[in-house]
Design a protein around this nucleic acid. Structure first.
Lengths: 338, 338
DNA sequence: TCCTCGCTGGAAAGCGTTTTCACAATTTCA
DNA sequence: TGAAATTGTGAAAACGCTTTCCAGCGAGGA
């Protein structure tokens, strides 16, 4: 049971090094010896010991994605990460941080002890210190979706500001004048950028930005519900709502349902992130982020970083597509795409 | 950078073994030496190398959960697994198999190479051979949610048959007579058990089981849509639908919406798995599985297996709660619980 | 007094690979 | 034709930790 490389080598009548080279298809091994080794390995049902290999080679061939993984958006990101990683012989650990800095720190500690080759992190606010420590330890990592102030690292994210700008512009063009903004936390970069795009579009249209209909909270369904309920219960409610994330949008829809308001007749709704796998939200006009491509890009960046530790940090900003459906009440059909 | 245990020991003026004992809180070390070691470790910002540790101790302190992780049910299971594992000093790898046997086999191979201590597997149909191979290699694993024919291993699952029986009984008691059953794949044990419970309830009520309104497919939204659409388009459509899984239920609801049918006025709907985090499905009467507890139980079983490799396999069957809401049209309120 | 026994510590030997380093034999190139 | 590059193999060491074995010491019991 559990044959070792040495045993395989002995059986094949070669040295362990030759056996290693044959099995890993690396270095020079004659066809004959290679075959002998492979046969011996099969006969002994040899399973290479990745732990020993990692110890000696100082490489674990292991990457990790730290994010709030249980969410359609992150699921797609994870798919992209795995695809690229597997192509290059890496495995991926999925770590669900629930956007909790404590969980995040715990995972990072674990992973560093295990000598993981690289990390892809959707950083929670306030984890700057941990990330800086990673930099000091020369532990390669890539930021995804969100950037963190004071942390110098490769990053991949969607062009939130531009997409928010265009989404808002679309609402304004369609005729809405008072657009409520339901955003995430102040100190999450995507929340800031989406509000910035929203503001830019309104200002540019010659309208005034009402700060009191911009609500910051968290990217949760619950906050979406509360914020929408509150906004729509005011004396002068908005005629449109901008949910800065898909889960917020679900909460918004539920609040509107509770209040007996119809979309888009009573109020228009647009949001960020794709919602096609959320049945109740399929009619939403949305800024659809290229989630899988973000995962792919981040992984490529990480692999490049492993190969070139001293390269200056790269920052990728991917374009976001606006998908117009019926929730914005514009005339362009229920399933068009701009 | 990257201080080793040996360096810590030298700085503390002790042998590496003593340093190891001090850091791991194991064996006899005097208070004084322990403090010296801990101080030295801090000063050198020592990070233990788990790879080296694993190689020598032949333990990785690593478990994995293989399942279609991207789903509220499995997310809850994963939470339970992580909780118990972390308590005992284990980390957990989440592996999303998409219920694809090929992906599953790939992951298992990877994990065994990495000398993972134990696996928790939601086996896809037809992976019996792989699991038997694991048994031959003495690789500990636990089956979760589903059992597999011909595989002898610890297992944890919900009492699907009983819950399906009670759910069906509830519909019959409420007055429905013709209940369409939309199930998963034939060779998935949960699908079989849920149909069995459904049959039992109908027979016991003195009614005849109509095989032509029992539809097998897959646990996907898409199949739920197709099956419901087909059933409700017949000349004598059912007056109630039983979706054997939460994703099926989403598809069912969408099909009914497309057909312009209202729940429960036109047709009642019940389903398996909790749906509270799926906005459009919160009113469904459902058999709510104790997902997190399943994860906890499976992990406990796995840890016990690691400690007692020769213990005969244990099989746990957890009770499932029926949560009555409004989709079954019974009088007991919209949010009651039985 | 002798002998166990609980405590404290170290020396040496690996765990199973891969990384040097070394050495031939063969081929390629100017 | 000689030198350099390419191809093919192995010996020995090393990766960083823990296991195993052993030894000293004081206390308590026979």
């Amino acid at each position: 049971m559990a044959a070792t490389l040495r045993e395989v080598a002995t059986r094949a009548g070669v040295s362990p090094i030759t056996a290693s080279r044959a099995l890993n298809n690396r270095g020079y091994v004659s066809r004959e010896l290679r075959d002998r080794v492979l046969t011996a390995a099969t006969e002994l049902s040899y399973v290479p010991n990745a732990v020993a290999s990692s110890l000696r080679s100082r490489k674990t061939q292991l990457l990790a994605l730290l994010a709030g993984v249980i969410n359609p958006f992150w699921a797609a990101v994870a798919r992209g990460v795995e695809a690229v990683a597997n192509e290059s012989g890496y495995s991926v650990l999925l770590c669900n941080t629930d956007d909790d800095p404590v969980r995040e720190a715990g995972y990072i500690d674990q992973l560093v002890r295990r000598r993981i080759d690289g990390l892809i992190i959707a950083a929670t606010n306030g984890s700057a210190a941990i990330l800086q420590a990673l930099n000091r330890q020369h532990q390669p990592f890539v930021l995804i979706d969100r950037v963190v102030d004071g942390v110098n690292a490769d990053s991949v994210r969607g062009d939130s500001k531009d997409a928010a700008y265009r989404l808002t512009q679309h609402l304004l063009t369609t005729g809405y004048k008072r657009i409520g903004m339901i955003s995430g936390a102040h100190n999450v970069s995507t929340a800031q950028e989406r509000v910035a795009g929203y503001r830019a579009a309104i200002s540019e249209a010659g309208l005034e930005v009402c700060d009191d209909i911009i609500l910051y909270g968290h990217y949760t369904e619950n906050w979406g519900y509360q914020a929408a309920y509150q906004l729509m219960s005011r004396q002068h409610p908005p005629d449109a709502l901008f949910a800065a994330n898909n889960y917020l949008a679900l909460g918004v829809l539920e609040a509107l349902h509770t209040l007996g308001l119809k979309v888009p007749e009573d109020v228009a709704v647009v949001c960020f992130d794709d919602t096609t796998n959320l049945v109740s939200a399929r009619f939403l006009t949305t800024a659809s982020q290229p989630a899988e491509e973000m995962g792919r890009a981040a992984t490529r960046l990480l692999l490049e970083r492993l190969a070139m530790p001293d390269r200056p940090p790269q920052h990728m900003i991917l374009p976001i597509e606006i998908v117009v459906r019926s929730s914005c009440g514009c005339g362009s059909g229920t399933h068009g795409s701009v």
